[in-house]
């Protein structure tokens, strides 16, 4: 998925990195605990978080992630966006809460393994009791 598609799905505002929206991201994770991101995340592209300090950007840099989404309409304090910009990180901001933001991206196929396919949707009138 291109970052631009993710931004559209989340009705997100691009705070910086508008020139990188064509970059691909293959998966995502949502967390407010940076230690957990550092512990469990592998080859993720996008971090969704409600935390808005400079350590979010450093965590991204350490993990080679290229896009952060601030959820719940959080406005990062001065300097954060600039620091992200200096380091080539795309910063998006969405009004959606964490759960819905993650859900929308997941339903759109981000972060699902190929063998998992799309979520199963049963047809009306399918043969069940």
């Amino acid at each position: 998925m291109k970052i631009s598609e993710a931004a559209e799905i989340l009705n997100a505002v691009v705070l910086t990195g508008g020139d990188k929206l064509d970059e691909e991201v293959h998966s995502a994770c949502g967390s407010d605990m940076m230690s957990d991101v550092l512990a469990y995340v592998k080859d993720q592209g996008v971090l969704l978080t409600g935390l808005i300090n400079v350590q979010v950007i450093r965590t991204l840099l350490m993990m080679d992630m290229n896009c952060v989404v601030f959820v719940r309409g959080k406005v990062p304090p001065e300097g954060i966006v600039e620091f992200a910009e200096e380091n080539g990180v795309v910063v998006l901001q969405t009004k959606l809460p964490m759960f819905e933001a993650c859900g929308r991206l997941y339903c759109a196929g981000l972060g699902r393994r190929e063998d998992e396919g799309a979520p199963e949707v049963k047809d009306e009138g399918a043969d069940h009791e």
Partner: peptide, 17 residues
């Protein structure tokens, strides 16, 4: 510190890992 995103008790285990 937890409010800042750290202090989850993963620091030293992560360093070892």
């Amino acid at each position: 510190i937890r409010a800042l995103g750290f202090g989850a008790g993963m620091g030293l285990p992560n360093m070892k890992r």
